[in-house]
Write a protein that binds this DNA or RNA. Structure first.
Lengths: 218, 218, 218, 218
DNA sequence: TATGAATGAGTATTCATTCAT
DNA sequence: AATGAATGAATACTCATTCAT
């Protein structure tokens, strides 16, 4: 026997019942997570809709507007969450060692890992909505792109310590960025660079760059 | 056997056919170009609609379906045009010199140039619709991704000539690809790598890579 | 002075005004009724469109989706309403007499009456969308086709009471069904069996069948 | 590798090539047959389109208009073909025996067989487009519904021969029609009367009717 | 804080039909 | 007899958003 198709409203009501049993996560978070989930299932933020988010979390579509001004803002905040996690992971890698060269490598590796583990976020942040990089985050949060500063600081330190040839740290950091991004972006966007291969290329790339930049030791 | 001169009517018919052929080609092209224009103005193919294309070129929406099976097909053919031009430019660069190392550099440079000059196409081809890379083009055209083969051949030749350390040409080509793509993609997607800077980074990157890969001469 | 046909939007606006004056009939019902009306005017559900329904009731097309998942669902629910009324009328006829043979006749007559009075519904239910007969109605409602059970029960009772020759009640009920349906369906689908004639044929058919099935009395 | 979706026109061209190899059936016939094929595949004439027909037979859509005034006419002629075959099969059955009662049964059986074997046509002719029954066929063809006359003649003959009680042959024929149609129509429109069961019910029905109408012998 | 009702705008796509050739 | 180009109208359906409660 064929089933009867449920109205959107009916779907909503069903999930609305379920929702109370889920721990009382702050609604804002719930929305963001649902959005990410949808991005994942649909392979991008292009085709997701606020209604789907609402339906999924068991709230009315209107409710989302109580937490985000509009669709764009919701997407932006998904990106923001990404930038936050991204920054934290880079920071953690930075803090992990005192060896200036190893540290550089670890930061690079953390960058790649983020891309491998959060392709949806990475794509959104660095491949599709580059404009977010310069959008001012609300409430005096630290500027988004400052995550990049970590890389620069690592380069700077390496130069100061004499482990890299002297030069413009900003420029060198930029160079390294393009190398890591190249691997990450092709891994995400094409079928030709699966995980292991991407990791291998990253290591290789770093080695070559280190040599090219005058690294005393690997 | 009589070789009769063509009658007026025959001439007419012939030219009429030619005109229509031409006209048809032109419309197809017009559509493709209008699509690219829309991609540009809207910053991506996500939000473009066939209706807009139609409106822009002054045809009814229906007419587009006489030339493309559906929206997806139109987008795919925009990408195809890109792949064609891309391949030709790489090929031209390859043919430009006999010096294996210089040739490698020229091919890389042609790659970057394509990205700088056709950001819309590049984005579509390599950043958003990587799946097109494996889609079979219609009418027995050469496979899309074979453009990449040019790079591999250039590496191969350089190795054979002893200008690069021996190794797996495919892998080395892949490495170079990530380097160029890194610059190109960040240039396109973020505000941080304007043209001049991108070009500078590319040169620098190539130099470092050359050294790292054992290039005898620069 | 040209009398231009009113656009969709104009119609909509006009009807939209009217609608507030209609008592607050539940919208869902209004939609269903409008649909039936359209079926009637267009001689079938094939060429009716949700937009027309919307226009007719003075709501936007979108609104319909708040009450029905899609077009198919709306049609199905029109049929469901039919099945409900149909079942009730058969049930009422069944309850009307204790004479097992008379009762059988009354049930048959109720069946025919339903078809005569609700040709649109009948056509939909039994002539065009027979698949609905096996579609599970929503919300645990009794299965659609169980209306047929009434007929079977009536036959069964008549057999038990010895008023009909013993036999398979299901089969006999099926036979009677084909007889009544034959009259009803030809009445609805062709111009050859107007009401009175259909009623006459039904009586005649029942008489013959009764005799053929061993009815003790007429 | 995914395939590229073909334009409608491309499909057409392909089939257009194939078509010359098919024997040079008269185009008109080809169209009619293609239409029936489409009805079959789509389970009804509601959703079929002239373009599909054209595409299928490898002619341009326009060509169809050279043979049929419009869609409606094409459908009508499909029905006409049905009526022709129907009439012929009934006629053949009529001619098959001299026993007036057996002949009656054979005609009935031929009727049922037509429905079982050509459900698409039967549905169109007797369940959906009853108006065709009274539409004048073009070119002085014999009126469509005259097929029904065969049944009436058979009844008449039986009465004259004293094999049936005297009465109005037209009315009796009508009664028999409803009986056969009831079985046929429920077989086609619902899942409850598969072939064997329909055949059984038909025989049973005829037997009962014969007895009810005073048949001297079975 | 949350919701239900409602809508205007927009989307891809299909179709029957016409016209000039 | 056949075709290609073209179109206007229509359809189902989705979405972001607003407003009154």
């Amino acid at each position: 026997m064929t089933e009867t198709a449920p109205t959107r409203k009916q779907n909503l009501r069903k999930n609305s019942l379920e929702r109370r049993e889920r721990g009382k996560l702050e609604l804002r978070r719930t929305i963001l997570e649902a959005a990410v989930g949808l991005f994942e299932r649909q392979g991008g933020f292009e085709n997701f809709s606020l209604r789907q988010v609402a339906e999924e979390i068991g709230y009315s579509a209107t409710t989302i507007y109580l937490h985000f001004a509009d669709k764009e803002e919701l997407i932006f905040h998904v990106a923001l969450e990404g930038f936050k996690a991204f920054g934290e992971q880079l920071e953690a890698a930075y803090a992990h060692s005192d060896d200036v060269l190893l540290r550089l490598r670890l930061v690079g590796r953390a960058y790649l890992n983020f891309a491998l583990e959060n392709p949806i976020h990475y794509r959104l942040m660095f491949m599709q909505r580059g404009d977010f990089l310069e959008r001012k985050p609300p409430g005096g949060q630290v500027s988004v792109i400052d995550s990049f500063g970590i890389l620069r600081r690592a380069v700077e330190a390496a130069m100061k310590a004499g482990a890299l040839d002297p030069g413009d740290p900003q420029a060198v950091a930029g160079l390294l960025w393009t190398h890591v991004h190249g691997v990450a972006a092709l891994h995400i966007a094409t079928p030709y660079f699966p995980k292991e291969q991407a990791e291998g290329l990253f290591e290789w790339s770093m080695t070559i760059a280190a040599r090219g930049l005058g690294a005393r030791a690997l």
